[in-house]
């Protein structure tokens, strides 16, 4: 074995540790963890896009689409988590596939804003639809897992386990994808698209593929969120501020490593939770302030702190 992928090893250790921790974690912490996994997965999709130099300010579109798709299926009588999450993911991916034909032609800020514009259209449709509870949204019953119908705390424990397994697989998949030729093309597209095309690859196709990937994982995050919270509503699922939060998490995490997005998502949840607790009227101030501080002082996200520590560790002291 000449080469062992450290990220894969690290992810696996984290996965096993969290799997074990699931049974001991404080309930509120598990809930924060669940949300971090859901939001982190969305950020993972954004990371893939970001490596190509593209940022979407509208991924609440796919997040909301996945969430509402899963939630609406429960209204039709489907309650199996595997089916709901799979369907939510797939439907969001399909939408990304369709919109991708248009969006893959745009770069830079135009790409970001067109995404935002599309997400606002979804928001408008939901608010207008009384059958879906308009701004109130509607509640989602606790899911079953291949016939197993947990109750009480077991719902969250099982859901966490379920989410953890899939998140682990998705993260591994994305990581391995980024190492393939097509995945590695990201940076090339970002640096010089036309040269990529001279090499015989279609930059638009590369982007389109990544876009669909990001839509799929955002749909997954949304479906998980709908099941975890037991409620969908447009303001917390499809509003432009939600998209802003995803970009926030991506910046917080940095794009150095797939695992970073989950750490970023967790840090985000914790900042928000504690800001809410200690400054009930001024939590936005704290949230915005932390974001500014990170942008100014940690331009490459929290992951860069660890890289720096590692370098310091390696450097022999004179």
């Amino acid at each position: 074995m000449r080469h062992i992928d450290k990220t894969v090893v690290g992810l696996t250790i984290a996965f096993l540790a969290l799997l074990f921790a699931d049974f001991f974690m404080a309930e509120w912490m598990r809930f924060i963890g669940l949300q971090s996994l859901a939001r982190g997965t969305v950020a993972l999709g954004l990371l893939v896009l970001w490596r190509t130099g593209l940022v979407s300010f509208g991924h609440a579109l796919y997040f909301g689409f996945g969430a509402y798709a899963a939630a609406m299926l429960t209204l039709l009588g489907y309650h199996d988590a595997f089916f709901l999450v799979f369907a939510g993911t797939l439907i969001a991916g399909l939408l990304a596939f369709l919109l991708g034909f248009l969006l893959r032609r745009y770069r830079a800020i135009f790409f970001a804003l067109l995404n935002m514009a599309f997400s606002m259209i979804l928001y408008g449709v939901i608010v207008k639809t009384e059958a879906l509870g308009s701004t109130d949204g509607f509640s989602v019953l606790a899911p079953t897992f291949l016939g197993y119908a947990p109750e009480g705390e077991a719902v969250q424990t099982t859901l966490f386990l379920f989410t953890l397994v899939f998140t682990y697989l998705i993260t591994l998949g994305v990581h391995l994808y980024l190492k393939t030729t097509l995945g590695g093309m990201s940076m090339a597209v970002r640096e010089n698209e036309i040269r990529v095309e001279y090499l015989g690859y279609s930059a638009e196709k590369v982007i389109h593929f990544k876009y669909v990937l990001s839509g799929l994982v955002a749909g997954f995050g949304g479906a998980i969120m709908a099941l975890a919270i037991g409620q969908v509503d447009p303001d917390s699922m499809a509003n432009w501020t939600v998209s802003g939060e995803f970009v926030f998490i991506t910046i917080l995490s940095g794009i150095g490593n797939v695992a970073a997005t989950f750490v970023g998502a967790l840090v985000f949840e914790l900042i928000r939770t504690y800001a809410f607790e200690y400054a009930p009227q001024f939590w936005q101030f704290i949230l915005g302030g932390s974001l500014l501080a990170i942008i100014m002082f940690l331009p490459d996200g929290i992951w860069s702190v660890l890289s720096r520590l590692r370098k310091a560790e390696k450097a022999p002291s004179p």
């Binding site: 940022v55 300010f57 830079a108 800020i109 970001a112 802003g244 970009v247 926030f248 910046i251 009227q281 001024f282 939590w283 936005q284 101030f285 949230l287 915005g288 302030g289 974001l291 500014l292 942008i295 331009p299």
Partner: peptide, 17 residues
Amino acid sequence: EHTIVLATFAMFLVLED
């Protein structure tokens, strides 16, 4: 430019409060 947008978003949150 995305970082800049996000910075203005952060500033907006701060100024709201």
